[in-house]
């Protein structure tokens, strides 16, 4: 190259191309995304975080949780479960219709003991053929879409996370590393407030062999006054404070836990369906199984 103009032109062309691709196009494609409707309930999704949970997002960012915890669920595919609810008035023609699509189901047990699952197919297109065949002869079927993949098997989510899940987040922290488990749905997986507080104070007391650092900075250790504080942590074993002392969560701890409990991205969406829809948020503080 003889002139500096060529160098700058080369750099300009290369960089403007990737700028257009990874900054401009995503902004056009996703930058104005708004609430979508869940299927089939047609609720608005997502809802912006409010109050404590919104403040907790700042605590999450400030403590650098993202360096160990991702907030995104992957999915390798879906399985579609076809349930036969009712064989209709003419059961034998229903069976014939089913057998046309799935010859291996041509046996009387297929239409007895209803409702039950009759087929488990790889995609929605394959289930459509069966649904059409059965409904044409008056049978009733239900189709359940079940996402699959290692993240889902681990219970980290019901479906993959999509751009829609993050539209109200600033800062968006999908994370790139899993030194700890994924937190995209920690609010539905571990919905107990006290469990979360105890876990932040002394992770090993809640999860044996946990490698997570304790966040004692979020708690205050103080002398028990005339009356013990109502919100002091109930700790046992090694993590319990010395007699006469109590461990009380600070505002930051409460905010962070409110945020963690708000983490839930399992609403069934058109672009990422999951049926039957997951149960609504639990009203009580029962410990959700891991």
């Amino acid at each position: 190259m003889k002139s500096s103009n060529t160098i700058f032109l080369a750099a300009f062309i290369a960089l403007s191309a990737s700028w257009a691709g990874f900054v401009l196009v995503p902004q056009i494609q996703l930058g104005r995304a708004d609430q979508a409707k869940t299927i089939p309930a047609e609720d608005k999704y997502p809802l912006a975080r409010a109050g404590l949970a919104a403040q907790g997002a700042e605590v999450y960012r400030s403590l650098g949780c993202v360096y160990c915890h991702s907030q995104q669920v992957g999915q390798q595919g879906v399985k579609v479960e076809v349930l036969l609810l009712d064989a209709g008035t003419n059961a034998s023609s229903t069976l014939a219709a089913i057998a046309k699509v799935h010859p291996e189901l041509n046996k009387p047990e297929t239409i007895t003991g209803l409702p039950k699952e009759i087929a488990y197919v790889a995609d929605i297109a394959a289930s459509d053929a069966l649904v059409k065949a059965v409904t044409a002869v008056g049978g009733k079927v239900e189709v359940n879409v079940i996402p699959t993949g290692s993240d889902i098997s681990r219970g980290w989510g019901k479906r993959r996370t999509v751009a829609q899940d993050y539209i109200f987040d600033h800062v968006v922290q999908p994370g790139t590393r899993r030194a700890g488990p994924d937190l995209a749905n920690v609010g539905s997986r571990l919905a107990d407030l006290n469990w979360q507080l105890n876990h932040l104070y002394a992770p090993k007391s809640m999860v044996k062999d946990s490698t997570m650092p304790a966040y004692r900075i979020l708690f205050e250790k103080r002398k028990i006054g005339k009356v013990a504080s109502a919100d002091a942590l109930k700790l046992t074993g090694d993590s319990a404070p010395p007699p006469g002392f109590e461990i009380v969560p600070t505002d930051k701890a409460r905010e962070l836990v409110a945020y963690l409990l708000s983490l839930r991205s399992d609403a069934p969406l058109f672009e990422s369906p999951v049926t039957p829809p997951p149960a609504a948020a639990p009203a009580t503080n029962t410990v959700a199984a891991k």
């Binding site: 700028w19 990874f22 900054v23 996703l30 539209i167």
Partner: peptide, 23 residues
Amino acid sequence: STATLLLQIFPVRGVVQSSVAWW
């Protein structure tokens, strides 16, 4: 300047932030 403007001064919406940050 792209990162400063689009992530911190006039933050873009949702995962566009991730796209800008990764870019």
